[in-house]
Protein backbone atom coordinates (compact mmCIF):
# COMPACT_ATOMS: atom_id res chain seq x y z
CA UNK A 1 0.00 0.00 0.00
CA UNK A 2 1.09 3.52 -0.72
CA UNK A 3 1.98 5.83 2.10
CA UNK A 4 -0.01 9.00 2.58
CA UNK A 5 2.98 11.12 1.67
CA UNK A 6 3.36 9.44 -1.71
CA UNK A 7 -0.36 9.64 -2.38
CA UNK A 8 -0.37 13.40 -1.89
CA UNK A 9 2.81 13.89 -3.88
CA UNK A 10 1.42 11.93 -6.80
CA UNK A 11 -1.76 13.96 -7.02
CA UNK A 12 -0.55 17.48 -6.28
CA UNK A 13 2.28 19.56 -7.65
CA UNK A 14 3.84 22.35 -5.60
CA UNK A 15 3.71 20.46 -2.31
CA UNK A 16 6.61 20.15 0.09
CA UNK A 17 6.00 17.36 2.59
CA UNK A 18 7.92 16.90 5.79
CA UNK A 19 7.22 13.77 7.83
CA UNK A 20 10.19 14.04 10.11
CA UNK A 21 8.11 13.85 13.29
CA UNK A 22 6.13 10.86 14.41
CA UNK A 23 2.35 11.03 13.89
CA UNK A 24 2.66 14.36 12.15
CA UNK A 25 2.90 15.41 8.51
CA UNK A 26 3.64 18.96 7.43
CA UNK A 27 2.36 19.87 4.00
CA UNK A 28 3.41 23.18 2.52
CA UNK A 29 1.50 24.17 -0.54
CA UNK A 30 0.43 27.17 -2.57
CA UNK A 31 -2.87 28.86 -1.92
CA UNK A 32 -4.62 27.59 -5.04
CA UNK A 33 -4.42 23.93 -4.11
CA UNK A 34 -5.39 24.16 -0.42
CA UNK A 35 -9.10 23.62 -0.92
CA UNK A 36 -8.66 20.66 -3.26
CA UNK A 37 -6.09 19.16 -0.90
CA UNK A 38 -8.49 19.49 2.04
CA UNK A 39 -11.24 17.97 -0.07
CA UNK A 40 -9.04 15.03 -1.00
CA UNK A 41 -7.97 14.40 2.58
CA UNK A 42 -11.54 14.57 3.82
CA UNK A 43 -12.46 11.83 1.37
CA UNK A 44 -9.56 9.76 2.65
CA UNK A 45 -11.17 9.88 6.11
CA UNK A 46 -9.38 12.78 7.76
CA UNK A 47 -12.66 14.42 8.61
CA UNK A 48 -11.80 16.35 11.75
CA UNK A 49 -10.63 19.92 11.30
CA UNK A 50 -8.95 20.62 14.62
CA UNK A 51 -7.78 24.15 14.01
CA UNK A 52 -7.43 26.99 11.57
CA UNK A 53 -4.77 29.43 12.60
CA UNK A 54 -2.78 32.30 11.20
CA UNK A 55 0.83 33.39 11.59
CA UNK A 56 2.04 36.85 10.71
CA UNK A 57 5.38 36.94 8.89
CA UNK A 58 5.81 40.67 8.82
CA UNK A 59 9.32 40.74 7.25
CA UNK A 60 8.20 38.68 4.27
CA UNK A 61 4.91 40.59 4.09
CA UNK A 62 2.92 37.39 4.20
CA UNK A 63 0.38 35.61 6.36
CA UNK A 64 0.66 31.88 6.89
CA UNK A 65 -2.62 30.01 7.28
CA UNK A 66 -2.44 26.71 9.13
CA UNK A 67 -5.02 23.93 8.92
CA UNK A 68 -4.74 20.90 11.18
CA UNK A 69 -6.59 17.75 10.20
CA UNK A 70 -6.95 14.40 11.86
CA UNK A 71 -9.28 11.40 11.71
CA UNK A 72 -12.03 10.70 14.21
CA UNK A 73 -11.92 6.98 13.55
CA UNK A 74 -8.69 5.27 12.60
CA UNK A 75 -9.58 2.89 9.80
CA UNK A 76 -7.04 0.09 9.80
CA UNK A 77 -8.59 -1.94 6.99
CA UNK A 78 -7.84 0.69 4.42
CA UNK A 79 -4.33 1.11 5.80
CA UNK A 80 -5.06 4.64 6.93
CA UNK A 81 -2.19 6.22 8.77
CA UNK A 82 -2.82 7.49 12.26
CA UNK A 83 -1.47 10.96 11.90
CA UNK A 84 -2.16 14.68 12.15
CA UNK A 85 -1.88 16.56 8.91
CA UNK A 86 -0.74 20.15 9.13
CA UNK A 87 -1.34 22.14 5.98
CA UNK A 88 0.42 25.46 5.61
CA UNK A 89 -0.01 28.07 2.98
CA UNK A 90 1.13 31.63 2.44
CA UNK A 91 -1.05 34.54 1.38
CA UNK A 92 -0.20 38.15 0.73
CA UNK A 93 -0.47 40.56 3.65
CA UNK A 94 -1.80 43.48 1.59
CA UNK A 95 -5.59 43.18 1.28
CA UNK A 96 -5.37 39.66 2.65
CA UNK A 97 -7.98 37.42 1.12
CA UNK A 98 -8.65 33.71 1.10
CA UNK A 99 -11.41 31.25 0.25
CA UNK A 100 -13.65 30.14 3.07
CA UNK A 101 -13.75 26.39 3.66
CA UNK A 102 -17.12 26.36 5.40
CA UNK A 103 -18.64 24.20 2.63
CA UNK A 104 -16.09 21.50 3.46
CA UNK A 105 -15.75 21.81 7.22
CA UNK A 106 -18.59 23.60 8.98
CA UNK A 107 -16.65 24.06 12.19
CA UNK A 108 -14.23 26.41 10.44
CA UNK A 109 -16.70 29.23 10.98
CA UNK A 110 -15.53 30.58 14.36
CA UNK A 111 -11.87 30.14 13.42
CA UNK A 112 -12.31 32.15 10.26
CA UNK A 113 -14.25 34.84 12.08
CA UNK A 114 -11.51 35.01 14.67
CA UNK A 115 -8.79 35.36 12.03
CA UNK A 116 -10.85 37.97 10.23
CA UNK A 117 -11.19 39.97 13.42
CA UNK A 118 -7.68 39.65 14.83
CA UNK A 119 -5.61 39.58 11.62
CA UNK A 120 -7.91 41.19 9.08
CA UNK A 121 -7.96 38.32 6.60
CA UNK A 122 -11.07 38.44 4.43
CA UNK A 123 -12.63 35.01 3.86
CA UNK A 124 -14.63 34.98 0.65
CA UNK A 125 -17.83 32.95 0.93
CA UNK A 126 -18.18 33.18 4.69
CA UNK A 127 -21.84 33.91 5.55
CA UNK A 128 -21.36 35.74 8.89
CA UNK A 129 -18.05 37.54 8.71
CA UNK A 130 -18.48 40.00 11.59
CA UNK A 131 -16.64 40.65 14.88
CA UNK A 132 -16.63 37.81 17.38
CA UNK A 133 -14.66 38.81 20.48
CA UNK A 134 -13.69 42.45 20.41
CA UNK A 135 -15.89 45.24 21.74
CA UNK A 136 -14.31 48.22 20.00
CA UNK A 137 -12.87 48.87 16.57
CA UNK A 138 -9.11 48.93 16.18
CA UNK A 139 -7.49 50.71 13.25
CA UNK A 140 -5.02 47.87 12.75
CA UNK A 141 -6.24 44.40 13.66
CA UNK A 142 -4.60 43.79 17.05
CA UNK A 143 -2.82 40.49 16.40
CA UNK A 144 -0.83 41.86 13.47
CA UNK A 145 2.84 42.32 14.24
CA UNK A 146 2.80 45.98 13.25
CA UNK A 147 0.08 46.77 15.81
CA UNK A 148 1.89 48.77 18.48
CA UNK A 149 0.17 47.82 21.73
CA UNK A 150 2.12 50.26 23.91
CA UNK A 151 1.29 53.17 21.64
CA UNK A 152 -2.34 52.09 21.63
CA UNK A 153 -2.40 51.92 25.44
CA UNK A 154 -0.83 55.37 25.68
CA UNK A 155 -3.29 56.84 23.19
CA UNK A 156 -6.43 55.12 24.35
CA UNK A 157 -6.39 54.10 28.02
CA UNK A 158 -4.05 56.78 29.34
CA UNK A 159 -6.21 59.53 27.83
CA UNK A 160 -9.23 58.64 29.93
CA UNK A 161 -9.33 61.15 32.80
CA UNK A 162 -9.29 60.24 36.47
CA UNK A 163 -12.53 61.07 38.31
CA UNK A 164 -12.30 64.40 40.06
CA UNK A 165 -14.57 64.59 43.03
CA UNK A 166 -17.02 67.45 43.13
CA UNK A 167 -16.77 69.15 46.50
CA UNK A 168 -19.91 69.71 48.51
CA UNK A 169 -21.33 73.19 48.53
CA UNK A 170 -21.33 74.55 52.03
Amino acid sequence: MKKLKDKIEDLFDNVIINDFYQNRIFVKTNKESVVSLLNYLKELGYDHLALVSCVDHVEENEFELVYILSAYIHNEHENQEKTNIIIKTRISREKAKFTSIINLFENAEPYEREIFELFGVDFVGHPRLKPLFLEINYETPPFRKDFDTRKFVDDFFANIPIIEEIEDEK
Binding site: P142, T149, R150, V153, I163
Partner: peptide, 16 residues
Protein backbone atom coordinates in the same frame (compact mmCIF):
# COMPACT_ATOMS: atom_id res chain seq x y z
CA UNK B 1 -1.54 43.25 31.36
CA UNK B 2 -0.24 46.81 31.53
CA UNK B 3 0.41 46.93 27.77
CA UNK B 4 -2.50 44.81 26.62
CA UNK B 5 -4.75 46.21 23.93
CA UNK B 6 -7.93 44.87 25.47
CA UNK B 7 -7.58 45.21 29.24
CA UNK B 8 -8.66 48.10 31.45
CA UNK B 9 -5.75 49.66 33.29
CA UNK B 10 -7.36 51.59 36.14
CA UNK B 11 -10.73 50.31 37.15
CA UNK B 12 -11.61 53.26 39.39
CA UNK B 13 -11.97 55.43 36.29
CA UNK B 14 -15.16 53.56 35.43
CA UNK B 15 -16.74 52.51 38.72
CA UNK B 16 -15.92 53.62 42.29
Amino acid sequence: YWDSYNTIKKLDKYIP
